[in-house]
């Protein structure tokens, strides 16, 4: 176990140290102490190392992660795991706006709540939020899966493309072009797999599925009020 203390080590050195690890390295377990809300902690990691952040972080923690496992034992600021390519990011506390924004792959687990625009413009990432998500979550979401064990705020899935949304609790309102859809066996399987990987205690049958009505895929004057 290697340790980096942000009370005495600056951000550049923390990230440079983690980024310098190669897949050949045998130093695969790292701990970061005293993040105290710092921004851009553990960003751009592209080897399968494991990083535990003991405390809360600021903006863009685990940004563009590609293969690492990053576990934040605290809450995270805006844009956690933004544009993640692969790997796993786990947040024990809450996440601020834009969690998992534009993520292309990997798994983001938020054990608390996520605020607005969770999964905005997501492009393949899987996100499991054990609490609730705020307004405009999955806005313009293209691909991937958003699972919410709690409730969803206003305008869920606005201008949605092909991402799949599963919500166990209530949905305050659906955004433009987002509709409830039939839950088929393939969806229940997918959900069961994600819940298991996220360590979330919920039954797939308790969820409802939401997806794109695909009415905005080609401009149609009769839908102009939805633009």
């Amino acid at each position: 176990m290697q340790s980096l203390d942000m009370a005495t080590t600056d951000l550049r050195e923390v990230n440079a140290t983690l980024q310098a690890q190669t897949s050949a390295s045998n130093q695969t377990e790292w701990v970061i102490d005293n993040p105290r809300g710092a921004h851009a902690v553990a960003v751009g990691l592209d080897t399968p190392i494991s990083v535990t952040v003991r405390g809360s972080t600021g903006y863009y923690c685990a940004g563009m992660n590609a293969g690492a496992t990053i576990h934040v034992q605290g809450s995270v600021g805006p844009g956690v795991a933004e544009n993640m390519m692969s790997g796993t990011v786990i947040v024990d506390g809450d996440a601020s706006q834009y969690a998992g924004a534009t993520g292309h792959g990997g798994l983001l687990v938020i054990r608390g709540n996520a605020s607005s625009r969770c999964g905005i413009s997501m492009k393949g990432i899987d996100i499991v939020v054990q609490g609730s998500v705020g307004h405009m979550s999955a806005f313009m979401a293209q691909k991937g899966t958003l699972v919410v064990l709690g409730d969803a705020g206003d305008a869920l899935g606005d201008s949605l493309y092909e991402a799949r949304l599963f919500v166990r609790g209530s949905v305050k309102s659906l955004g433009a072009d987002c509709v409830e859809k039939e839950m088929r066996a393939e969806h229940l399987d997918r959900l069961a797999d994600l819940l298991e990987r996220a360590g979330a205690d919920a039954k797939p049958s308790e969820f409802r599925r939401y997806g794109s009505a695909r009415r905005l895929y080609h401009f149609n004057i009769d839908h102009a009020d939805q633009y």
Partner: peptide
Amino acid sequence: SEYRAFADLPGIDTARVWEPEP
């Protein structure tokens, strides 16, 4: 505006922390 501002407040680790709704 950011969580960073709270880092030194007494008892912050057990405080109720949330984001105001729109």
